[in-house]
Amino acid sequence: MVTRHVILRSLSKVLIPLIMLFALYVQFHGDYGPGGGFQAGVIFGAGIILYSLIFGLPKARMVFRLRVLQIIMASGVLLYGSVGIATILKGGNFLDYNVLAHDPVHGQHLGILLVELGVGLTVCSVMATLFFLFTERRRREDV
């Protein structure tokens, strides 16, 4: 695994940062073009999975710790929910972003940005975790 696939490894070293950068673009450009938190999370997760396919599961698990991923996936939903709670505390309905800022349109922008970020965090970490758990099971059964 280490010495073989030289072309794959060197190409993916260039590609994986670009994939992750593209995911961030999709995440924060969702207001203006197609895309949003869900798609961005899936693309970022695919970048993580590609890394573990090329460089092996142990290395990937060292970079993306399962415990950290678990915290991230929960905090994504938590971020989404706390935006809703914040709108209630500021006097609006649940997830009514108008009250988040002085200008309702600015409030909507802020709310959508935060909410999409929450979706992206959860989806990305869930995808990576699912893949890790599936492949780790095989590794355990091999030995």
Partner: peptide, 24 residues
């Protein structure tokens, strides 16, 4: 009301924010 060009995002994240929360 929302002021962003992609109306799909407006519907998904704001008008239907509750559904998207459920999906997440």
């Amino acid at each position: 009301e929302i002021g962003i060009p992609n109306q799909v995002t407006s519907v998904l994240a704001s008008y239907r924010g509750y559904d998207t929360w459920g999906e997440t």
